[in-house]
Design a protein around this nucleic acid. Structure first.
Lengths: 200, 200, 200, 200
DNA sequence: ACTATCGGGACCGCCCGTTAGT
DNA sequence: ACTAACGGGCGGTCCCGATAGT
């Protein structure tokens, strides 16, 4: 890695981070390229050297997020205990997200909003999204095989679980004080497991 | 002079409808006032005669939607059967929405997105939102009283239920063919009720 | 004509005239819309209310010029004398143009240059251009019928005449002092007529 | 080091050729330096290593063209026959240009357009231009001396001839199918010679 | 109530040229 | 000799809103 390449990579990262901040704070449309450049202490020339358009930064941000999520998910699997315990421990995730990355959440909403209208964005997002579904379906499948979960359609079960999580996130995001989201999450997981687990 | 007022009301409605279409199709920011006017076959002057700004139309649209939702909710309650049956029958609602008003959905997402940043929008939206929660909490409360549901915190239960529904809507909207959302809804409702209902 | 319409027409004319000046002085590309607006004492909003783009002004200018040329040509025909005299008297035209509208000439060059690349411009320009050819062919035809010109192909003869005039204009424009263009014109016309006229 | 110099010369030529193509296709102003570099498969640094500015390439192109024209003109003189025949044989030149280098022609128009506004360009172009005039004047002078052309002002005659040719080129370029330019050229040359030649 | 004209700001994208580095 | 990264400014377009007039 020559010093030049390193500098270039730093610039690129500064732009991405600045863009993330700005988009999160003011939204994609309300954020100007000039604003991003200023925040990143980078000239417009540099900006357009690294990205072909404002959209491109948005896409890059999306990809960056998807990669990070991929990593976090795979690290989530390494639990030694049985599947039901595993699922129960996942109950902290929504709460964690709501507590730690509230400011990032508006961007995720915009990812979705844009994905509807920009086929390119949708294409980029839908593939990982479906993979995530498979990931959870796999966990449930494992639970069935290990004999701790009753026989159920893993795909459907995964979708139920994710729907529940997504709903909590969206509402916790929109109205953080409208409910005790921690309790709600807990209650939801309890209900799911009470139905899925095999009682001895 | 009634005919004049009527004409005025028609113009107003044309603007609102046009705005709804445009916002849904291209998004709030990407939609220009001129575009709305053209779609509504109305001059810009007329637009600004009826609305003080683009934001104002957006707010009006939001209010219109909230009112409609209010009506639909209250019509939902008039079920003669017992509460569990009532809830079970609600399972068709998400599917109905996904089938019939897909093109409207992007605008609801924008309502949320904007609500985060515009306190005025948030204020307008959060009150009805909480009311809806209460509405469902009330239903559950009724179920407990009528003896068909076990003792549970109505608020939490309502939130669980709504979270689940919201998650389904968001995903069914983002990836309609990613899962059989009808089955997922059915499965979710079954799980909830199996946990909530009092078994005899 | 209401006062409003009148004001609008004035604005439009101010823009056109300003654009003509700027284009002639600095060229189409080097002239900014802002510059035109400033010269015309008009806001950008007004500019884009009347014209959809910078190109549109250019086209309007072209049309304006073509119309003016149409008028001048038709007024040229009303000569009482015979055709050869008529043609001989036209010899003053190039000189007149070179003396009086030198500053306009760069625009005409740009009309041609752009016409090559913009089919829309070409379409607009080629029709009148061919009409002008017909006009001169008609004159020559008349000379043949009146018995002062020998039998010759009017189309070809007209093209020869016009080619000669165009060449003089282009060179007189590029290098005004490179030759005595008045004499050259005179000599050319003499040669043409000596060949075309019927000697008695 | 010869191989290095050769490589450098090749690069330079690639840039010039690429620039010629781009300028001809999109015009000087509409062509970006980046575009030229891409077409030449060369980096911007290399471009500015060889040329100080975009203008400089343009000038280099102009010079290249003038040199080539110089060569072609001098090769034109080597005719053994008498001057009138020589002139008559030149009638093929415009047709040849129109047939073979139509795509180059827009660039020549830009040479002229720019020459009007850039004194440096004008200076570069006007000297050869006048030399070309002298060249043709010399031919006519020779014709007079050899007794095949009548006594006439060689300068004026040359200008008449060139004007005619220039006019044909410009029109044949603007509207190739507007006339049979071959016939027009032929007719023009015939007229000129019928007037200039000494009849026996 | 409704229209046409207008004001001027601001945004995205690009462009020409420079420079640090190979 | 050649490259990639960068600087900063400008240009066309559009947009929201205001105003003068019907």
């Amino acid at each position: 890695m020559t010093p030049k390449q390193q500098r270039s990579a730093e610039t690129l990262d500064r732009i991405l981070t600045a863009a993330e901040t700005c988009f999160a704070e003011h939204g994609y449309d309300a954020t100007g390229v000039a604003q991003i450049c200023k925040q990143a202490s980078v000239s417009k020339g540099a900006f357009y050297h690294h990205f072909s358009s404002k959209q491109a930064v948005f896409m890059a941000l999306l990809n960056r997020w998807l990669e990070k999520t991929d990593q976090q998910l795979s690290s989530l699997r390494q639990t030694q205990s049985n599947i039901p315990e595993s699922i129960r421990s996942m109950a902290v995730v929504p709460q964690f997200i709501l507590n730690n990355s509230v400011q990032q959440l508006p961007i995720y909403l915009e990812f979705i909003t844009q994905a509807i209208r920009e086929p390119e964005i949708w294409q980029t997002a839908v593939e990982p999204y479906r993979r995530y579904n498979q990931f959870f379906a796999g966990i449930i499948q494992a639970g069935i095989q290990e004999g701790t979960l009753r026989e159920l359609d893993p795909q459907i079960a995964a979708s139920v679980m994710i729907s529940f999580a997504v709903g909590i996130l969206l509402q916790g995001f929109f109205d953080p004080n409208g409910a005790d989201w921690e309790q709600v999450t807990q209650a939801g997981v309890d209900i799911l497991l009470s139905n899925w687990m095999i009682r001895e």
